[in-house]
Amino acid sequence: MEKARENLQLTQQESEAVSQLSVPSHLPNVDSSFYEHFCLRGIRVDRVEPGVIVCSFRVPPRLIDKTGKLATGAIINFVDEVGGAVAHVEGLPVAANVSVDMSISFHSTAHADDELEITSKLLGRKGGYTGTVVVLRNKATGELIAEGRHSLFGRHASKM
């Protein structure tokens, strides 16, 4: 328990940095929320094909943990967001699907300014369920950072 408490303590520098954050509110007619601005800013879509999305992302210092590595929460976020994007059904709201299961294998890590390639593939659909796989690689070395399987559910209108 003591080890967990130590890991959660902020240094003076971290405390000052947090106190200086400007957090814009999410208001009607505002294009992005704090979450989108903080976590998703910088993702570039390189290629879109039926069932495949390939993105690039340069790891910013804001997503680095205390050990100097890309935070595991950021990796989980990429699996959720990019996996959800490839599962999107044209003509339905983006929020039409909800995540019901994610399984992520962490193979390596990334550091600030590493360029990542994030590839999401649609595995299939059955009823309201959709399965995707998301792979994060270091773009320069090809090293596998993480691989995630993502299941989503959406109640889609019948086409009949």
Rank of each mutant, 00 (worst) to 15 (best):
H150L: 11
R58D: 06
T119W: 02
G142L: 08
A96S: 15
G91A: 07
V52F: 03
A87F: 03
A110V: 12
S105G: 11
R44N: 11
E81R: 06
V82L: 15
L92T: 08
D101H: 15
D114Y: 09
I43W: 05
M1T: 10
K66W: 03
N29P: 04
G124R: 13
A95E: 02
H111I: 10
L40Y: 01
C39W: 07
L8P: 00
T141Y: 08
K139P: 01
G83C: 07
P50M: 01
F57S: 01
D101L: 09
R155I: 15
R44L: 12
L40R: 07
D101P: 05
V135Y: 01
S25N: 03
F38T: 01
P24N: 12
V54M: 08
T67P: 04
D46E: 15
A71V: 09
I118V: 13
D101F: 13
P61N: 13
R58F: 02
S25W: 14
E147C: 02
S108M: 06
V100G: 05
V100L: 13
R125V: 10
G154R: 01
V48E: 11
M1F: 07
D31Y: 12
L123C: 08
G142Q: 08
A110M: 06
T119Y: 07
H156Y: 15
I76Y: 10
R47A: 14
